[in-house]
Amino acid sequence: MKPGTLGAACLAVIRRDLTLSWRRRGDALNPVLFALVVVTLFPFALGPEPNQLARIAAGIVFVAILIAGVLALDSMFRSDCDDGALEQLVLSPHPLPLLLACKILVHWTTTALPLIVAAPLLAEMLHLQHAVLPVLLAALALATPLLSLLGAVCVALTVGMRRSGMLLALLVLPLYVPVLIFAAGACDAAQAGLPYLAPLLWLGAALVLALVLAPLACAAALRISIT
């Protein structure tokens, strides 16, 4: 009688969550469609003037992707909490933070990655300068995992509640403000022809910090929530 290895456990979590989201692959499109609709609303509200839209394009894309991410957050632990799979995860002999990190990784892959893929389309719809697009994608690649990690802690805190949607948004959006400032700041600098590396590096540093600390906080919050 010996328990399985940690690697096998992480692999099992990743494989199961990927299979589950593949079985419901239609759901993966929802955040992308949402961001698309939000971005479409701005030309209607502000007028289709290309120069005016191009000036604020990066900011709009970031906010649209960020809010789409918030709406997708709730699904991170919801079904696991409802069917008891979370208890089995907590009871497993392996470190809970690592297993949760795997879950967060899969959640990012299935919700945020499609948004990054759709980002060039969103940027094009708002006439973003083509030279800024690589900076926008780099900022998104650093910012969205950070958002997922920060969001996971808040989801873990609210997963025990029945209707936590609005509360979750209220908890998580203030935490997203610094991420938004640095990500949009990098694009602003690139648009103005200024050096844009510093804000990106700050995002990278914050991501590394969150990568280490967020799963630990997430595990502690989940233990509180399921009791």
């Binding site: 010996k2 328990p3 399985g4 096998a8 099992a12 979590v13 494989r15 199961r16 089995q88 297993l99």
Partner: peptide, 12 residues
């Protein structure tokens, strides 16, 4: 698939 996940997580 459910059982395979359980063994991956808890060993067999």
């Amino acid at each position: 698939e459910n059982l395979r996940f359980a063994t991956g997580l808890g060993g067999m």
